[in-house]
């Protein structure tokens, strides 16, 4: 009885099914036994053009975790302070983001992507070209420890209802997750997502438009291009304003 069960599970079912699934019998039995079958060559026809080469492998995770905030502070004083104030203020809120209160992973990814040109930025690229990956991790460590920018409590006292829904509930009819599903404080979303609270609304709106148009495309698997592309311009404005509202 037991023998029949094992034979069925490990020999008969896999071998008969092998024909149907386009693998040979040996591979089928290997898989039934849970032994890794010989890897097939990935059948792809195009060369991959990744949105970003940043990958959270062990090396990168360790590098970011080991970033030195003291070295990062010195570097920031040298190279960044002209645009990025330690209090999160910038000289042009439409194009220069507040960099404080972000996770080191979020900062590191954007710095790396801009350095490689995956996120085009003519101002940042020459500066970053001078820096090593270790220095990027130091900068990320430094800025991640600075408190988030105080947002303007008078700016938008009343966010529009639609924006609140998009930000906190999402819209299943358009397959739009809530902004907070990734950007919230307890979201558990992708590792590199930035916090939006405390970010300049003009900057948020500009980035959403850049994602929608494809001008910015360093989001892995188009997570943001897809979402931004579904938003109306009014929704972009409203959602951006929502994140300036005090909470």
């Amino acid at each position: 009885m037991a023998l029949a069960v094992w034979a069925l599970g490990f020999l008969i079912l896999p071998v008969i099914d092998a024909n149907n699934t386009g693998i040979d019998s040996l591979t089928a039995i290997c898989r039934a036994l849970g032994i890794a079958a010989p890897a097939k060559q990935a059948p792809s026809t195009q060369t991959a053009v990744p949105a970003s080469m940043t990958a959270w492998d062990a090396t990168t995770l360790d590098a970011v975790a080991l970033g030195d905030p003291v070295a990062g502070a010195a570097l920031a004083q040298d190279s960044c302070v002209a645009c990025h104030d330690p209090n999160g203020l910038t000289t042009d809120p439409a194009t220069i983001p507040s960099t404080t209160g972000q996770s080191a992973r979020a900062l590191y990814k954007q710095l790396s992507d801009m350095k490689r040109g995956e996120r085009p930025n003519d101002v940042m690229k020459p500066i970053l070209d001078e820096l090593s990956q270790k220095q990027l991790a130091d900068l990320a460590a430094y800025y991640s420890r600075l408190p988030r920018r105080n947002h303007d409590i008078h700016a938008i006292a009343s966010a529009r209802g639609g924006a609140i829904v998009l930000a906190t509930k999402g819209d299943v009819s358009r397959a739009l997750p809530a902004c907070e599903a990734c950007h919230g404080a307890n979201a558990g979303g992708p590792l590199e997502v930035p916090m939006l609270t405390g970010q300049y609304p003009d900057y948020i709106a500009a980035q959403l438009r850049a994602y929608a148009s494809g001008a910015r495309k360093n989001d892995i698997y188009g997570r943001m291009r897809r979402i931004a592309g579904k938003l109306t311009d009014q929704e972009i404005k409203d959602v951006a304003a929502y994140y300036d509202a005090p909470r």
Binding site: I12, L13, I16, D17, N20, T21, R31, A32, G34, I35, A36, A37, A39, A42, P43, S44, T45, Q46, A48, V49, P50, A51, S52, M53, A55, W56, D57, I220, Y221, G222
Partner: peptide, 29 residues
């Protein structure tokens, strides 16, 4: 056996952290 109605059971590993960089699961594949 007869109708090929089995649960998916191909034990085939892939690195989730570099999935987007190259290979069959890169974005344009």
């Amino acid at each position: 056996l007869g109708l090929h109605m089995n649960p998916p059971s191909n034990i085939e590993t892939v690195d989730p952290n570099t999935l987007h960089v190259a290979g069959e699961f890169a974005e344009n594949n």
